[in-house]
Design a protein around this nucleic acid. Structure first.
Length: 309
DNA sequence: ATGGACACCTGTGGGC
DNA sequence: TGCCCACAGGTGTCCA
C-alpha cells in the first residue's frame, strides 16, 4: 500500500519519539513478519533488546533505524518495509491492542517516557529485520532523515538489503539527468519504468497513475520514445505530486494506511485518476477507465492519455 | 533486456 | 445469511 508519501509520514512520526530511545523489550507475535531477518526470532530479539536507536531514515519506500548495539563493532540498523498493508503505530504502554499486530518493540524515549512501537500488517508482505549498514556507493547520505544524524557515522550508509534501491525524487541528491538517461534506454512502457525502484524509487501504483495523468501519458508508452521535454515534465509532475501528498500526510482509503497515531492522510481528495473509475476526467470530462495491467490495475483518461507513435 | 506469470498473504466488498 | 470471486498503496524471482 504505502508509497513514498505514506512512508515519509511514518518516518516523520517515528523520529521525534524514537531518536535516542532505548529498546527495553520485543514481542514477536508472528514470525512471518521477520522473514527478511536471516537470524530468526531469537537473534532479532537479542540484538534489539538494550539497543539504542539513533535516528529514522528513509529512501523510497524503505525505512531504517540505525542502532547502537553493545558488544559488537558491526554497524546495524532495524530495517522496515510496509509492503502492501504495513503500519507502524506508536502507542502508550497498555493501550488497547491493535488488530493484526505482528511485532511490538517496547522502548524508553530520550525524555524518559515509555512507548510501544507496534508493527501491524494484514497481508504480511511487509517486514522488519536487522541488517548491516554499508557505505553508500556515491559517498552521499543514504536517505532522508530531516537533518537528524548529520555528521554521524551512519549518515552516509544504507542497509545492505536496501542498497539496490536508487534515490527517490524528493532526495536532495536525486540525479535527474541520470534518470532521464535511463528512460532513453528503456523500451518498456513508462509506467513499468516508473515503478522500477532501481530506476527511481518511491513511486507505486497510485502516484504512477497520478503522474501519468498529470503529464498526459499512456502507461504503455515506451519510455525511450518520450521526448526529453515530456520526460522532464513527467518527473516534475512526480515531484509535485509526491511533495503535495507528503504535505497531506499521504493517501488513505480505508484501514490500510494510517500515520503513527492511527490517523488517515488526506491526499485522496486530490486524486485525479487512481480509483476514479467511471468518474469524469477533471480535464476533459471523458470517463476515467481502469484497465487490467501487470496483475493489477491502471487508471487513466483514454482521451487525454493516448499512446503515441 | 523485457514482459509476463506467479509467489508471498489476509481481509473486505459486491453479486447472487 | 452465506458463498465465491475480484480486488487491494509491493517486491522478488523464475521463465519464455
Amino acid at each position: 500500500m504505502p508509497e513514498l508519501p505514506e512512508v515519509e509520514t511514518v518516518r516523520a512520526g517515528l523520529a521525534p519519539a524514537l531518536t535516542n530511545a532505548k529498546v527495553t523489550g520485543v514481542d514477536v507475535l508472528d514470525a512471518r513478519s521477520l522473514k527478511r531477518h536471516p537470524g530468526g526470532v531469537e537473534d532479532f530479539k537479542q540484538t534489539l533488546i538494550g539497543a539504542k536507536i539513533l535516528g529514522v531514515v528513509r529512501r523510497g519506500k524503505f525505512l531504517w533505524l540505525p542502532i547502537e548495539v553493545k558488544g559488537t563493532t558491526q554497524k546495524l540498523a532495524l530495517v522496515g518495509h510496509l509492503g502492501m498493508s504495513g503500519q507502524m503505530l506508536l502507542r502508550s504502554p497498555g493501550a488497547s491492542e491493535d488488530k493484526l499486530t505482528r511485532v511490538v518493540i517496547h522502548a524508553k524515549c530520550a525524555d524518559g517516557e515509555k512507548v510501544e512501537f507496534r508493527f501491524i500488517d494484514q497481508r504480511i508482505f511487509g517486514s522488519l529485520a536487522i541488517d548491516e549498514l554499508i557505505e553508500t556507493s556515491d559517498g552521499k547520505p543514504g536517505g532522508f532523515s530531516a537533518g537528524v544524524g548529520l555528521g554521524q557515522y551512519w549518515q552516509n550508509m544504507i542497509p545492505r538489503q536496501a542498497a539496490h534501491i536508487t534515490r527517490d525524487p524528493l532526495d536532495e541528491d536525486f540525479d535527474e539527468p541520470a534518470v532521464l538517461a535511463k528512460f532513453k534506454k528503456k523500451n518498456s512502457g513508462i509506467k513499468r519504468v516508473l515503478l522500477d525502484q532501481q530506476t527511481l524509487s518511491g513511486i507505486g501504483n497510485i502516484y504512477a497513475d497520478e503522474a501519468l495523468w498529470q503529464a498526459k501519458l499512456h502507461y504503455d508508452q515506451p519510455a525511450a520514445s518520450i521526448s526529453k521535454a515530456k520526460a522532464s515534465e513527467l518527473l516534475a509532475a512526480v515531484k509535485d505530486i509526491l511533495a503535495k501528498a507528503v504535505a497531506q500526510g499521504g493517501t488513505s482509503f480505508d484501514e490500510q494506511y494510517k500515520n503513527v497515531n492511527g490517523e488517515s492522510g488526506y491526499f485522496a481528495v486530490s486524486l485525479n485518476a487512481y480509483g476514479m473509475t467511471g468518474l469524469p476526467c477533471k480535464r476533459c470530462g471523458h470517463p476515467i477507465k481502469r484497465e487490467n495491467w501487470m496483475n493489477r490495475g491502471s487508471h487513466l483518461c483514454p482521451k487525454c492519455q493516448r499512446r503515441r507513435g
